[in-house]
C-alpha cells in the first residue's frame, strides 16, 4: 500500500519535472472513483475524443452506450446508460476515473477498464485469441483517455 502511494508521488513528480511525462496505468491515484490529475498534463482534444468513442478499433464505447451526438455512427448498443448529458452528471475528474477504470466508481461494472495493465485473467493479444505478449498495453493511451474525457465533458443537455 505504502509502496503504491510512493510510486504515485514519484510518477506525479516526474510528470511535473519532465512536463510531458505520463502517469503510468499502475500509478493512477483514485479518490472515490475519480482521478483529479491529468494523465498527461496536455489538454484533451474533444474532436479526437469523439472519434475514439465511436470507433470500433479504438474506444468502441458505442458498443454499449448510445450517444445522440454521434447519430451518424450506426449500431449503438444499450448495455450501459446513454452518455447524453454525461458532462452535466459528472465532473472532469469523475469522468477521468470512470474511463480509466470504471470498476472503482461502479463496483463489478461490466464496463472495461481502459487504463489498466494488470490483474487480468488470461489476457490476450488483442482479438487474436492468443496469449498477450510484451506489446500488451492499456486499451487506450493516456492521451486518448484525456481526449475522451474532454469529449464527454462537452455532452451537456
Amino acid at each position: 500500500m505504502r509502496i503504491s502511494i510512493l510510486t504515485t508521488i514519484a510518477a506525479a513528480v516526474s510528470a511535473t519535472a519532465l512536463g510531458a511525462a505520463e502517469i503510468a496505468p499502475t500509478a493512477v491515484s483514485f479518490e472515490d472513483g475519480a482521478v483529479s490529475q491529468s494523465l498527461t498534463g496536455v489538454a484533451g482534444d474533444p474532436a479526437n475524443g469523439s472519434e475514439i468513442v465511436g470507433d470500433k478499433k479504438q474506444g468502441n464505447c458505442v458498443a454499449c452506450h448510445q450517444v445522440s451526438d454521434l447519430a451518424d455512427v450506426p449500431f449503438q448498443g444499450e448495455i450501459g446508460p446513454a452518455l447524453d448529458g454525461a458532462g452535466d452528471r459528472w465532473s472532469e475528474a469523475e469522468l477521468r476515473g470512470i474511463v480509466a477504470n470504471a470498476k472503482i466508481m461502479f463496483e463489478d461494472s461490466m464496463m472495461p477498464s481502459f487504463y489498466k495493465t494488470e490483474g487480468f485473467i488470461r489476457p490476450g493479444n488483442a482479438y487474436t485469441g492468443k496469449a498477450a505478449d510484451d506489446t500488451f498495453g492499456p486499451l487506450l493511451s493516456a492521451q486518448q483517455i484525456e481526449d475522451v474525457v474532454a469529449y464527454l465533458s462537452t455532452l451537456k443537455e
Binding site: Q76, M110, S113, R122
Partner: peptide, 25 residues
C-alpha cells in the same frame, strides 16, 4: 462466471445479465 481477458467479461455478463439487449450490432 469467470471474467476473462482484457475486457474482463464473463459468459454471464453478456448471456445472463444482458440477453435481449444490443451490444453494438
Amino acid at each position: 462466471y469467470t471474467r476473462t481477458g482484457q475486457l474482463e467479461l464473463s459468459c454471464a455478463n453478456c448471456h445472463e445479465d444482458s440477453y435481449g439487449l444490443m451490444i453494438r450490432a
